[in-house]
Amino acid sequence: MGAVLAMTRFWRRAGLAAALTLALAGCGNDIRESPLRLATAAVADLVRPDPPSVDARTQLTPELIASAPVSVLLVIQQTEDIGFTLVANSANLGVIEWRNTAGQSILRRDGIVAGTRGFGFDRMTTDADGLIRALRAGGADGVVRVHRVIDGAGVIEARQYLCNVRLVGTETLSIYGRDYDTRTFTESCDGPGGRFTNRYWIQPGGTIRRSVERITPELGDFEFVRLND
């Protein structure tokens, strides 16, 4: 009798353990029902070993760039010191969307960041018309720049910055075996989140070959390098 009870207890516990395993693994075609399971899955995803990430800077070669059939942009996320590439995906009214395979994108208008998506603390839009005029004019003071972000509470917040744009010199950039003559500008801004300085390397035709721009205070500075075109 005791053996039967022990077996009953064993199978009951085994059944419960199986139920727990199944429950935590979860299955079905409606995943909305269980916040606990979603949270468990999120934690499991995070503790799984990260696949080795490849920095695009270590892979790029002049030959690779020359053979690229599309426009390629090298982005270096300076706070993380990670480089990755984006390709031009679409254009709408002067804004080009550059996208990577991870589903992230950078929007640029006239070579200046107009927005980001998929990085978390994204910048939704930029009003930098004043900067574009100032760069064409060789510099200006009191230039207004407006960033719009979705704030932590989930609503659009407009952040206005006052900037001074200065021509600081000339520089020949050497990018994977090609040289580019550029004029260098700084854009020193003050506003919500503190001060920052963006830098632009502009070719005689107006192409911004390289830039370092503050995205948001949380994401920090991104460096952009036009690799071809």
């Binding site: 995906n89 679409s90 709408n92 969307e97 996208r99 991870a102 589903g103 992230q104 994108s105 998506r117 998929g118 990085f119 978390g120 603390f121 994204d122 939704m124 972000v149 979705i150 704030d151 932590g152 509470a153 989930g154 948001t216 949380e218």
Partner: peptide, 21 residues
């Protein structure tokens, strides 16, 4: 904790399909 301090900003979901002109 603060609802206004979203730890991952506006989210990490993939960039949307652009408008097809």
């Amino acid at each position: 904790a603060n609802p206004k301090r979203a730890p991952l900003g506006s989210g990490l979901e993939e960039t949307p399909r652009p408008v097809t002109l």
